[in-house]
Amino acid sequence: VKLFSPGGLKLTDEVQAAVQAEWGVLGRIDGPTDRSVPEDAVDNRWADALVASVTPGALSGLRLVVDCANGATSGVTAAILARLGAEVSEIHATPDGRNINQRCGSTHPGDLQRAVVERAADAGLAFDGDGDRVVAVASDGSLLDGDHLLAICAVDRLERGLLHGSTVVVTPMANLGLRRGLAARGISVYEVPVGDRYILEAMESGSWVLGGEQSGHLVFGDLATTGDGTLTGIQALDAARRAGRSLGDLATQLVDRVPQVLVSVPVDRPGVEVVAEVADDVAVAAMELGDGGRILVRPSGTEPVIRVMVEAVDATLAAVVA
């Protein structure tokens, strides 16, 4: 269950805490045991808004495959893309209330990568279960993450005079290749902690219109108040068409990814304490990487683990340091 404040914005930490406290006071409420999927309500406002975000027929002639993760985008995203002229086929689009995200969607894009190649598609889009994130697949089956999509949309908006302040909001997970690619085109990055709430807060305070995470959670402040994977896919595909390039070619041109190693280290005490204890070791490792790399060590906000991220031009060095 997701709760939003008036205007469709995320709840503040204070409001969330108050809701959680009140929730804890309530007794258990048993719901119905019937797990059947209810009939969809007819409301086309969201679909109409997404279609109107680009010019009519913007995706005409594109052959696409979408992986709906057996979730919220099943049946609806394909219809929206078809309204924009694309030829669309779906995979993992039969939700039964239990199979959402099961080895499919944005966290398991292997099936989509194979489908794009087998069906000779121009591109593919893989969503997560609730549809707020998306990663893409190029025509050759290669994976394009949120960094690639953010770069495509940022440069497109800059060229059209729509990127306020020539700035995008990112998190520490943004690949060094994205940062370098944007800087080369005169686009600044403003970094905030991991979490879409922080991205939204920064965008609002800076009057910026674009921000996102490597996971594929992008926010277009001039079009929506939250992440929307279908909107992100449409904007990226439209930008590539406008540039006269395939999605994959444009992505690899804009972002020369630096090898990135991610490690999760289980801990049995507060992560903040552990991070503080290894601060000197982290500093030494950062010196070893120099300007050709980057290291991030932080406690997870959801699990009892420490997240370690190491980037370096030399993939072997990145693995050793991590």
Score class of each variant (00 low, 15 high):
D130E: 09
L289M: 06
I187W: 04
S142R: 14
V308A: 01
E118L: 04
L176I: 04
R119M: 13
V261E: 07
V25T: 15
M203C: 07
T73H: 02
I187E: 02
V297L: 09
D268C: 08
T77R: 02
T73V: 13
E90L: 09
G129I: 01
V278Y: 09
G211Q: 05
Q16A: 12
H217D: 07
V320E: 15
D147N: 03
V321A: 04
G146V: 02
A240H: 08
M203K: 10
E87W: 05
E213R: 04
L125S: 02
I295G: 00
R307K: 14
L84P: 07
F220P: 00
L182P: 02
W46G: 11
L150S: 01
T252Y: 08
H164N: 14
P266A: 01
G129K: 03
V305L: 14
A79E: 12
T107P: 05
A123D: 06
G292P: 02
G27C: 00
R133V: 07
A82M: 03
P95Q: 10
L182Y: 07
R157D: 07
A52K: 12
E118K: 15
D43H: 09
G141K: 00
R179L: 14
V209N: 04
G141W: 11
C104N: 04
L162E: 12
A126L: 00
P56G: 07
F220N: 06
D280K: 13
S246I: 12
V263N: 08
Q102P: 01
M287A: 12
N101R: 04
G71S: 06
G85A: 12
D291W: 00
E213I: 03
T167K: 10
L50C: 02
V1D: 13
L262V: 09
R157Y: 00
A49I: 03
A72W: 06
T316G: 15
V284L: 14
T316S: 15
A184G: 15
R298H: 05
L62V: 11
V54E: 07
V265T: 13
G161K: 01
R179C: 06
G131P: 01
E311K: 06
A283W: 00
A47W: 09
P259D: 05
T252N: 07
R114M: 10
G212M: 11
S264R: 05
E273W: 02
D268T: 15
V169H: 06
R294L: 07
L237V: 13
T77A: 15
E90V: 07
V275Y: 03
E273D: 15
D43R: 10
V155W: 05
A151E: 08
T302A: 06
L149A: 03
T230P: 13
I29R: 15
N99V: 07
S205L: 05
F127C: 12
